[in-house]
Design a binder for these strands. Structure first.
Lengths: 224, 224
DNA sequence: TAAATTTGGTTTACTTTTGGATTATTAAAT
DNA sequence: ATTTAATAATCCAAAAGTAAACCAAATTTA
């Protein structure tokens, strides 16, 4: 086989499109020229183009040219890793109040006992920001687990593995004033009480208040 | 025994693929070259390739090359792939109403125009369940995009790539009565109108109604 | 409008490269 | 010492890339 296989060429072109070298709706160079530029026979190039066409990235029109129809939305990795703390808060605003409602529906006694334990850990760790943050994260993870919804559990775990989160938590807790920590503790308790008394809407509201506090604390930290 | 066993080589290659060094559809270097690169005899390499082929990661074509057919998804855990339709609905119940609120805050005119276009597609595709489902998914994706929150966009895209979703959608639309489809169309319009008039809570409520309809339709389909 | 040019699409004959398979040899591990 | 498994060197047939010519459709030009 020659130097480059059509799969190699396809990979090369896929990259060019991803990287924006060829933009959407743009016409690629004529096949003869492009083949020469890539150092490959026109035949091989055509196989590669056909492959990308199958993948929905290109559209060829005989006599006219080959056009980029879509750009591989590889939004996945970078977008998430680069999520800002504010985006994160908004995502939690979306997820966690409803998680509270579902927790009321599906939560069991052992879930609430575990949450109680994490509350106590937080209260005991008021002066150790790392321990406090760990217990905080554990509380929210356990809360998600109590919904018995594997998809939600996974979504929350994904959010919690975001790289920037650690930095942010560290940053946040450096500037966390005593007052805020006590507010957090009180809010966690309120959420837990609402769950225990099986009041979904009250739990959701308390969670929103909690997240609002987190957002304000974050914004104040961002200013400093 | 020699320096590297074929199992070692298999592990090494598996990791390369996981880490994205070899991406999907890509061709691995020719066995002779790859063997040399790995410091191993071609025989050993072939055993390793055979192993990975059995695992479904590679596909070798004699005379052509060895190709990556699948990439071990992140942690794409069975938990998510095996999510039930009801879990999926609950997750959307969590995410989408708040996405509506954020869309009111950050959505632009072009977003709403795109949503309008998808509404029209759905109305035009009332008798083609596949087209209808595609437009439906596109609507919800675009809605997420309008929040300008990369994390939420990613979460929604994750939900939409769930394998079982396709099957479910197909199943669901087989049993979708005319009446339900018209209800969907009306609800999408109501959501869009609320977004356009910048009423976050009304948009969220309409979305909840929509999801409630979806849940009921699903449960009825599950009975049958 | 009509002709010339440019584009992708197809076919052909030819050459190179590829994985597959077999053999004997060599280095470890038990 | 015996067994096991990697190594190394071949040969093979099939797959695929090369190159050149020609076709048909779209576009441009006269």
């Amino acid at each position: 086989m020659g130097r480059k296989s059509f799969a190699d060429v396809a990979t090369e072109l896929r990259r060019s499109i991803d990287e924006g070298e060829f933009q959407r709706f743009e016409r690629l160079p004529p096949s003869r020229l492009l083949a020469e530029q890539l150092g490959v026979a026109r035949n091989t190039l055509r196989d590669a183009l056909y492959q990308l066409e199958k993948e929905g990235l290109l559209e060829t029109r005989a006599g006219s040219g080959t056009y980029v129809t879509a750009v591989k939305q590889d939004v996945v990795p970078s977008a998430v890793e680069e999520a800002t703390p504010l985006e994160l808060i908004d995502a939690r605003f979306a997820l966690e109040p409803h998680i509270c409602r579902l927790s009321v529906l599906h939560g069991r006694r052992e879930d609430f006992e575990a949450l109680e334990a994490f509350c106590k850990q937080m209260e005991a760790a008021q002066n150790d920001s790392i321990l406090f943050a760990e217990a905080d994260t554990a509380f929210h993870r356990r809360l998600a687990a109590s919904t018995r919804n594997n998809l939600l559990i996974w979504l929350i775990s994904q959010i919690n593995t975001i790289r920037s989160l650690d930095e942010w938590t560290r940053m946040r807790h450096l500037t966390l004033e005593e007052q805020i920590i006590q507010q957090y503790n009180a809010q966690h308790r309120e959420i837990l009480n609402a769950l225990r008394s099986r009041e979904p809407e009250r739990a959701a509201v308390k969670m929103k208040e909690h997240l609002e506090t987190a957002r304000m604390s974050l914004m104040r930290a961002a200013e400093a």
